[in-house]
Design a protein around this nucleic acid. Structure first.
Lengths: 192, 192
DNA sequence: CGTATTGTGAACTGACCATTTCACTATAGA
DNA sequence: TCTATAGTGAAATGGTCAGTTCACAATACG
């Protein structure tokens, strides 16, 4: 009974994610989203309720398909000793070699923090949770790689490493080379 | 001959700086600026040409009156050995103790990076220069404090320390405690 | 006083935006 | 064919915004 859906919300959220990532929330207008998703305004509003609703779906998708896959190797019960280095090398490559979305646009969430949307409490909560996830994952990676350190030293190293990753993401759009240096510094600390 | 000026552009830029810092460029409307400066639109446009012109003046003022005074002790010919720690402790205090503009709003420039304005090339240049100044100053501070290290080690430490400061500024609005941890990590590295 | 400059007030322009609405088309199963 | 659901197209609504314009008021100097 009735016509079948010709799109899935995940696909649309993924497409919208890229647009928001490229142009930022405020600079993305409805016509941009219509064009990119191939959907009409009416359909977008029917599925997501508002531009903000679509953005929230895009953020979910960003976490699911961009952030968490990268962090996954750091989150198992038994973390490979090389996992953290692999993660950092992956970041470094993304930032310096190719024209990846990450190098060109930085982090979708961190960027939103400085934009008008960053005054929104619910978005701040999402960013804070992301920040926490990142620190937890890196802490696990540090523990696996640097079993020679005591717990306090591991924790301190994890904070440093997390901070360097954050700084790199915050600055990469403006100065990719500097971002690469930051990741290299993190690698050096992890390896020492 | 003729009426005397009743305001200086520096005063106005300083006031506007605070408004832009609190609310961000995009969320600051002309009426906000009129109210804060006590000036009429017409006067603002006569002195600064555009909203963007006033913002640029506010950024100049931010660098002159907020950033550079903090970095000054790190920039002399002979840098005090304790200068870097003093700088970091000042940042830490601003971020955790009081309700300072820095803790509440983060860094005016870094915030702008993620906003629509962050796509503007000339703003990116300003941010990149600021980033460079910061690294240079911290490098001098590291050299003064850690004469025991060789040059390569000093450089690596300086990059790490700069990154941690950046990360703290990028995250402080969302999570001031985490920002404080980052500065503490930087202190620990400098002192070791 | 005369004149040049500084500043105000208020209305207006033109653009852009998210959101709503609705008549219409398309496609599925019964 | 009937009906329910999916999706389109286009116009309208109401709001906000930066920037412009201009007649007018205030204040300085000669």
């Amino acid at each position: 009974m009735g016509r079948i859906r010709t799109f899935t919300e995940v696909e649309v959220a993924r497409t919208a994610r890229q647009v928001f990532w490229d142009r930022g929330y405020e600079d993305t207008a409805l016509p941009d989203l219509e064009r990119a998703t191939g959907l009409n305004r009416s359909s977008i509003y029917h599925s997501f309720g508002s531009k903000r609703g679509l953005f929230d779906a895009a953020v979910e998708n960003y976490l699911d398909e961009v952030i968490r896959p990268r962090l996954a190797p750091l989150r198992g019960d038994t973390v490979e000793s090389a996992a953290l280095e692999t993660y950092l090398l992956g970041l470094h490559a993304a930032m310096t070699e190719g024209h990846t979305a990450l190098a060109a646009n930085g982090c979708l969430l961190l960027n939103a923090t400085g934009s008008p949307l960053g005054r929104d409490a619910s978005l701040q909560t999402v960013v804070a949770a992301y920040c926490d996830d990142l620190r937890t994952a890196i802490t696990a990676g540090v523990a696996a790689r640097r079993a020679d350190l005591d717990e306090a030293e591991q924790k301190s190293l994890a904070v440093t490493c997390t901070g360097l990753v954050f700084a790199a993401m915050a600055i990469v759009r403006v100065n990719a080379a500097a971002a690469g240096d930051l990741i290299e510094a993190a690698l050096a600390q992890v390896r020492r």
